[in-house]
Amino acid sequence: MEKFTVHTGTAAPLRASNVDTDQIIPAEYLKRITRHGFEDGLFNSWRKDANFVLNRPAYQGVSVLVAGPDFGTGSSREHAVWALMDYGFKVVISSRFADIFRGNSGKQGLLTAVVEQSAVEQLWKIIEEEPSTPVTVDLEAQVITAAGFTTKFEVDSYVRWRLMEGLDDIGLTLKHVDEIAAFEAKRPSFKPTTI
């Protein structure tokens, strides 16, 4: 995983609440068995509308998404995170994320930055007035800056550490394989097995 310290890029405003994972990427795309190339499915039905924010010329090449509350609700599909990342997003900013989505994002290296809804409104205003405004997300300082506006953001401290170190979760856990084996040795015999 790539290390994440500071990211600067342009941002797209997504003025919608409760953007569920079916909207982020429809079930149709879940049939694929590869891990890359999901950008074409991102916001699939909305992208058919020429006025949808990601279709507007001013928002090409964005890497930060500023969304309404309760982003990523619904199914646990990780494809939602892959689609956002394959499209080029590095950061999603919202006042509230669904738990599973946030968990999935952390594992893949997509930063979900939680800010007050008022800060979301402020950022929307800035990037709507001037879409080319660079937005800087500093993970170390946990601060977002755009055109002189600054706001702190929240992120799980463990996820932050892992993102900053670029560490793979499984490798980290396997360092504790002895403890896992010790736990297994003590499991009661009444627990079921599948075979």
Partner: peptide
């Protein structure tokens, strides 16, 4: 608990999950 595909891989490899 529902989990994502990375977590599926994690459980397959380790039979554990790091969770708060």
């Amino acid at each position: 608990m529902g989990i994502g595909t990375s977590e599926v891989e994690h459980v397959l490899a380790t039979q554990t999950l790091p969770l708060k």
